[in-house]
Amino acid sequence: MSSHSHVEGQLPHEPERATLEGRNKITGFWLFLGGETVLFGTLFAAYLTLRGQVMDGPTPNELFDFALVALATALLLTSSLTSVFALQAMHKHNVKGLMGWLIVTLLLGAAFLGLEIYEFNHYVHLGHTFAASAFSTSFYTLVGFHGAHVAFGLLWVILILLQLKKRGLNTTTAPKVYVFGMYWHFIDVVWVFIFTVVYLMGKVG
């Protein structure tokens, strides 16, 4: 079987696991996400330690706007769902559906990122700059690390879309799609924690 093959009938149901390379990629990516968990865990710990230190700047309660954050959350959570639809399309060897859902995921992610940039810009005008206080530094670092992950994911999915367009679905491209899906869900889970720890606790705590 050539790995360039994209004749639908020849691909197995789970093309991402058809080769050892593909399986290695998936195992390794699970482990990588374990490391990422520690990374974000440390960022959360730093934020929780420092979030009370607002100095002369605005407090979390004054700063955060629920409507905006709720919209961003909805966008990102939905993009996780659409990435699952993409994967389901892949398992049916439906390249068109796969690419379509990946594009929807891309657009939702881009919208989320746009909102985050708007939000940061808004905060800076309120005096909540990176260097304002320990709270602001740890806030921007935590949320910014997440934002950077989203941005990286967007570039990644564009690259995957280009490869799918050029080479179709095969045992080389399938693991890439699958691993991207894992990454995207992970980013989503991190956001759920950011929503809770940063925004909800900022409003209530």
């Binding site: 100095m55 206080s133 530094t137 740890s138 670092t141």
Partner: peptide
């Protein structure tokens, strides 16, 4: 990854005037 975060935080403090480890800014 914990070291990654520590080094990044120290780098932000030094290059971008962050306040992770600066007691005068909390």
């Amino acid at each position: 990854p914990a070291l990654t975060v520590g080094l990044a935080a120290l780098m932000f403090d030094r290059l971008f005037s962050g306040n992770f480890f600066d007691p005068s800014a909390g």
